[in-house]
């Protein structure tokens, strides 16, 4: 490992410890790392979006491809800057209107197709046989329906509705539990990775100085 790499890894190790110091309490080291990452992340995403969105979609199309129809959305985008002025900020509503209108129109078909119809199809389109796979399919159907009943508030959750919605909330809790377990393990994996990094850095430091 070169001196430069060691220095950069030292910076990474220092910042890692700065963030871990929050476990004690909020302190200047944590604040330093927090603000640094806020600035660096903003700068990183700004340049990423500049090179991957602005240059190919706006600049290249107008300046190189001669697609002058892109002047309209560019003007709409620039109209957003009227928000800097209290007097003219209403002009930005036109841009927001296009943004919201187009997005809403897409959302209807996209969410209905991907998250409703495809999920319904996957739930219904399963064989109900008298084996393990069939029982699983049946339980998935019961689970989906009962969980949907739990979210259905147009009828009181009493009697049979109450029983079904009770099953529904149990199913949902199992789903949340699974998600929770996965999240915890993901975080633990990250923690292990950071600890391994710190140990590796100490080892490389020792090796560099001939320890």
């Amino acid at each position: 490992m070169t001196g430069g790499q060691l220095l950069l890894n030292g910076l990474a190790a220092f910042l890692t410890l700065c963030i871990f110091s929050f476990l004690y309490r909020d302190n200047p080291f944590y604040k330093f790392a927090e603000r640094l990452v806020a600035g660096v992340a903003t700068g990183y995403w700004t340049m990423l979006l500049f090179h991957t969105n602005f240059v190919p979609v706006v600049w290249n199309r107008l300046a190189h491809d001669g697609r002058y129809e892109y002047i309209i959305p560019t003007m709409l985008g620039l109209m957003m800057w009227t928000r800097f002025s209290k007097k003219w900020s209403w002009v930005s509503r036109y841009s927001i209107a296009f943004y919201i209108g187009i997005s809403s129109g897409i959302t209807i078909t996209l969410s209905l197709y991907a998250s409703l119809f495809r999920q319904l199809e996957a739930t219904i389109n399963q064989p109900l046989t008298f084996d393990a796979a069939g029982i699983s399919s049946f339980l998935i159907i019961v689970g989906v329906l009962s969980a949907l009943v739990y979210f259905f508030f147009s009828a009181a959750h009493k009697g049979s509705m109450g029983v079904i919605s009770r099953i529904g909330i149990y199913v949902i809790m199992i789903g949340f539990g699974a998600g929770f377990g996965m999240t915890v393990m993901g975080r633990i994996a990250l923690l292990v990775q950071r600890v391994i990094f710190l140990r590796g850095y100490v080892n490389s430091l020792t090796a560099f100085f001939g320890g």
């Binding site: 969410s111 209905l112 339980l139 998935i140 199913v171 949902i172 199992i174 789903g175 949340f176």
Partner: peptide
């Protein structure tokens, strides 16, 4: 089984809400 059922029901609820 139950995790998939819960995730599907939640996805359907989100889709209906978004629509």
């Amino acid at each position: 089984v139950p995790n998939m059922a819960a995730k599907r029901a939640i996805a359907m609820g989100i889709a209906l809400g978004a629509t």
